[in-house]
Amino acid sequence: MKAAESEVPDAHFTVDKQNVSLWPREPPPKTGPCLVLRKPLTVRAAVIILTLGLTASVLLQAIFYPWFMRTISDVKTNAQLLKGRVDNISTLGSEVKRNRGSVEATGIQVRMVNASLDHMRSQIEKLEAGVKKADAQIQILTRRWEEVIDLNAQIPALKRDLDKASSLNAKVRGLQSSLENISKLLKRQNDILQMVSQGWKYFKENFYYFSRIPKTWYSAQQFCMSRDSHLTSVTSESEQEFLYKVAGGLFYWIGLTKAGSEGDWYWVDNTPFDKDLSARFWIPGEPNNFGNNEHCANIKASSLQSWNDASCDNKLFFICKRPYIPSEP
């Protein structure tokens, strides 16, 4: 029985969509009565199973195939969309890379702008401080201007007072000038009195000393020089008249001399010698240089023409002359 079952060939089938093929197709070998009975049952069962499977497969294909195809189509569509998005993303990535440099440059510019803004903020703060200071100064100037307005209102009265003060100042200056002149006159008189008390006589800004002891002409000059003076010079008729009147007819040396017989007359105090003026003061016939030794001049007579030349070694009274110099205050 086992041998008979082992010799029965297996049934195989394939399903190609809606076609069913069974193989082998050759007729089964002839067997005994039991085998003949079993084989149709087995084949029938297999055919039923295959039919059911095929039916189920057809049903499943009829139901799921359209859905599966739609799904595949959707997947393809989504894949294309994703590919487009990936391409867009790639494009955006390249643009991002290109823009990264611009962003960095923009960042540098932003930092520079921030630095400029900080500097401007600092400048603005300084300007605000300057404005506050200017406001304070404007307030001060405003107060000063108000004070100036008040002073301008007072100007007419001040001008009247100033006119009065100017008039008073003029009077005061006049009085001061008068006092200064009086002070100078008093000082002058005091100086003159001091010199007069010492034996000097005053005449037209000069002091004259008429000696009471006779000396030679040279000794007389030395004496005068010890008194800050010289033997007198004569520069005008009024001075000549003053001298001969005070001399009173006595002989007095004056400061007129010459160097030798052929020399020119000159004043010992370096006053320029006026030959024409002096010609009116000589006694008629003088100077005659009697004995070729009369090189010094003296006053001999009480008259305008009173000069005489004499020997410098004669001893005569003499007249010293010194200019008036105001003493220190």
Rank of each mutant, 00 (worst) to 15 (best):
E95A: 14
N169Y: 01
R143L: 10
G84V: 11
A134F: 06
A105Y: 08
S303E: 06
C34Y: 15
R212W: 12
K132L: 09
S122N: 08
S57A: 13
C320G: 06
L127T: 04
V86W: 05
K184W: 05
L52K: 12
I283K: 13
L92T: 06
K184Q: 10
D87S: 12
R144P: 03
N308E: 09
A247V: 02
K187R: 14
L22S: 10
N78P: 01
T55N: 14
R227D: 01
E241T: 08
L82I: 10
R144E: 11
L250H: 14
R70V: 01
F64I: 08
D74S: 12
I89C: 09
A170Y: 00
K97P: 01
C320R: 01
K201N: 07
F290C: 12
S236E: 03
S122L: 06
H295Q: 08
V113W: 04
E239K: 10
Y65R: 13
E5H: 15
S211L: 02
K258S: 01
S90R: 15
L243T: 00
T31A: 14
T142R: 11
G263P: 02
K321W: 00
N289H: 00
V86I: 09
P329G: 13
I63A: 13
T106K: 15
D118L: 07
Q305E: 07
L243F: 02
N114I: 03
R70M: 10
A297N: 04
A56P: 01
E294W: 04
N99R: 14
L82V: 11
D264I: 06
K204C: 04
E241M: 10
S238K: 13
F251Y: 13
E294T: 01
F68N: 09
H119V: 06
V43C: 06
A46I: 01
E328Y: 11
L141N: 14
N292V: 02
P29W: 00
K30F: 05
P326K: 04
N114K: 14
K97N: 09
V43A: 15
E26K: 13
A79R: 12
N292T: 02
K321F: 00
L185W: 05
R188F: 07
S21V: 10
D313W: 05
K245Q: 11
V234N: 01
S183Q: 11
E146P: 06
R280F: 06
T235F: 02
S116W: 02
F251V: 06
L168V: 05
K245H: 06
V86S: 13
R143W: 04
V86T: 03
L117T: 04
V8Y: 00
S219P: 00
M120F: 08
D264L: 14
E146Y: 08
F251R: 15
L127Q: 09
F210G: 05
V246E: 08
S178W: 10
G130Y: 09
G107M: 12
N152K: 14
R25Q: 14
F68A: 15
K171I: 03
P329W: 05
V15G: 09
W217F: 00
S21G: 09
